[in-house]
Amino acid sequence: MLTRAQLDKYADVLLWGLTTSRVEPYKPGDVVLVQFELPALRLAEAVYAKLLGRGLNPVPRLTLTPRMETAFYGTADEAQLVFQTPGQAVLHENVHGAMHLLAPESLTHLSGIDPKRIAAAAVARKPLRDILVRREEKGEFGWTLCLYPTRELAEKAGMTAKEYAAQVTAACFLKDPEPVAVWRGLYENAREIKAWLGSIKARSLHVESDNVDLVVTPGAHRRWLGLSGHNIPSFEIFTSPDWRGTTGRYFADQPSYRSGNYVKGVRLTFKDGAVTEIAAEQGEEFVRKQLAMDPGASRLGEFSLTDKRFSKIGRFMANTLYDENFGGLHGNCHVAVGSSYSDTFDGDPASLDAERKDALGFNDSALHWDLVNTEPKRVRAHLADGRETTIYENGCFLY
């Protein structure tokens, strides 16, 4: 799907992302997990060589194939479903970085599996994720995530393989002579916008479009993040709000694939911070089960806006990494139900214990599901002194 030259540039961009995602610089001998799906093997090989060239110790790990996943979720007994590989916690305690190379060969192979079984496995793995979150809060761990184009993705997105690959190369600037330089420029632009948003000190944010009328409370001691190197590509500017202040209705006009299920037209109504009404044009029962995964699954963990001037993504890509960064004609707003990001705390995230996070309204869940709205919209910030100001309109930040 990608030429050798593009793979080499892609690997360079991923190394930039990995380096940027961590506060402390990597040292020779640091351990980096390279987790990849089989179609991304050539990209994994390119990344592996570059990590070695930096004096790092890459640990390659192939993820489950669709047939393996189907066998696991379809036939595992209760003990097998929550089984954790020996040594996994030790690896999480000692790895310094991780690269995740997504390249799905199937998006629907789990469509016949009871979502409760998938949720049970996700909840069982949450303690491992918590290890990495804690180490990231201390500046000891960084990660980056990317997508390698596959025929399955192209088909589900309604494109040819060539068209899909072209969207990926454009979004990641792989045709540019120096794509890393482009990312560095975007990083600086985003830093200015994040600082501006932080200076506004909004008491609440009001999102309005044809089908959205949602109030989100940024909360105390928050900061805005984005273009941090974690996601390649990433054009969103986001924060984790105080979930308790969420009220109103939200509509995701962008479809999504999740755990083998195609979901379209999700409508959520929030009251006192939690989802009280759920509807969907397709996949409604799946949505209901996902939001019942645990107590935090029906609460807001993220609020995000993407400026269309940054993003080159103009089509549905059948993958959340790209769809949550959709630029198109009107940019996008997306919210995530489920877990929040503690690094949106404006102090030292390592100082936050579970009690402090709860007091500040950071949501905790095994779920994190981004739901995207691409309608024309306006976002107004309501300030503590009663004034209001529009921060986002016609797909652009008004900075």
Rank of each mutant, 00 (worst) to 15 (best):
E163L: 01
A124P: 08
W243M: 02
P149E: 02
A161C: 04
G158V: 05
P241V: 06
G229T: 08
R203Q: 14
W196V: 03
R223I: 08
R191V: 06
L225C: 11
E140A: 14
D210E: 14
V168W: 03
G226M: 09
S204Y: 05
K138Q: 15
S256C: 13
E152P: 02
A170S: 11
K162S: 10
T239F: 10
I193T: 13
R222P: 07
F235P: 06
S234D: 15
V133L: 13
I237Y: 00
Y164T: 06
Q167G: 06
T246M: 02
E152C: 11
A170K: 13
K175A: 09
V263K: 07
S228H: 12
A171D: 09
K271A: 15
Q167I: 06
C172A: 13
F251H: 15
A190E: 04
V263P: 08
L227D: 07
G245E: 11
Y257P: 07
L205S: 06
K264S: 12
S234F: 07
A166V: 03
V207K: 00
A171C: 08
D242V: 04
N211F: 13
Q167M: 08
L145Y: 14
Y187K: 14
M159F: 11
D213H: 13
R258H: 13
R244A: 03
L147I: 13
A202G: 03
V182H: 08
L268E: 06
L132M: 11
I193W: 00
L268H: 06
V212Y: 06
K264M: 01
P127M: 05
N231P: 07
T217M: 12
S240A: 12
S256Y: 12
D210C: 00
C146Y: 04
Y148R: 04
G229K: 04
N261D: 05
V263G: 01
R191H: 12
W143E: 10
M159N: 05
M159G: 04
L128F: 03
H206N: 08
T247E: 15
L174D: 11
G139N: 11
G185R: 13
D253A: 02
V263S: 03
D176M: 05
L128P: 07
L197H: 09
F141R: 07
K194D: 00
E140H: 11
F173N: 12
F235R: 02
R267E: 12
R244C: 02
K162W: 06
Q254A: 10
D242N: 14
E163K: 04
N261R: 14
L128I: 05
T247C: 09
T169Q: 00
G185P: 01
V168E: 04
K156P: 12
A170I: 00
T150K: 00
A154C: 01
L186D: 03
G219R: 02
Y262G: 07
A165W: 00
S256L: 15
A202S: 09
G226H: 08
A157W: 07
D176N: 11
R135H: 09
E140V: 05
A220C: 03
P255R: 10
S240E: 05
T269R: 15
E178T: 09
